[in-house]
Write a protein that binds this DNA or RNA. Structure first.
Lengths: 136, 136
DNA sequence: TATAGAGGTTCCCATCATGGGAAGGTCAAG
DNA sequence: CTTGACCTTCCCATGATGGGAACCTCTATA
């Protein structure tokens, strides 16, 4: 299986496969006589593992750790679980931040006429002027 | 007001103030004879505008547009509102994605013993094996 | 069999927003 | 006058990805 086939089999672009190899996330595969990379089904499996971890939002570094644990038959599942829960915490923090941004923006957009007149509470807020909330 | 004072007055690092100037987001301020940047209160106000927009998750490019609209007394608030609502949409999409990641991870972490034994559903899932959900 | 085009290889550059740090100039307090 | 804090410019790094050039290789078809 050459790099193009491995790419479509895993959803990881050829560019990224080479990149992952260059940073040592995955091992360098064998080559044909004409220097083409050849991927075994094991290596494709590894690529799928990487793809899934990245999709779940793990950084490449975290992915490398998980990959190491995956390949270590003696590892304790506690270690994996702690990486996962740490990651859940980071994601949840991010979600809260985004939600707070959305909340503020919705409030502003709500107060903004969105018409032809120049008066605009959104810009006023960005400029630091306190917004007059209409009594609820 | 020199760059350090402008920085602590706005929460934008001196590094970033220079960067914003270099990419044309803000105008180059006057200089002292000894080549120090000097910021007027107007310029500090602009920096605060930028800071607030960035905090709300607008990209530098979007911020530039908003800044232009802010300085254009003739603009229609509709234009600003459309940028804001577009941005809200993007943030909400991101939130949904993150929530879906969290949901999956929580499910996995929940099924993972987190003990000394090597059996680990999180790694199994990453490796592409279907997880056996305990009947509820 | 010659050729076209699809796909491989390496290498360099760009992105986005930010920080680090070097080398050197300036200012204020002791 | 020295010290230390601050300013200046310039270059480099980050993380994950894509773009593209220059060149090589394979395969199908005219």
């Amino acid at each position: 299986m050459n790099i193009g086939e491995a790419s479509s089999a895993t959803g990881v672009s050829a560019k990224m496969i080479r990149y992952y190899e260059s940073i040592g996330l995955i091992r360098a595969p064998l080559r044909t006589e004409s220097n083409y990379r050849v991927y075994s089904s094991d290596e494709v499996h590894t690529l799928r593992f990487v793809k899934r971890a990245r999709t779940l939002g793990f950084s490449v570094e975290e992915t490398a750790t998980l990959l190491g644990l995956w390949q270590d038959k003696e590892r304790a599942s506690a270690e994996v679980k702690s990486i996962a829960t740490g990651h859940i915490g980071a994601l949840e923090t991010k979600i809260v931040e985004l939600q707070s941004m959305v909340k503020t923006l919705k409030h502003l957009a709500n107060c903004c006429g969105g018409d032809e007149r120049p008066n605009c509470p959104i810009l006023d807020d960005l400029a630091g002027e306190t917004i007059k909330t209409k009594g609820h």
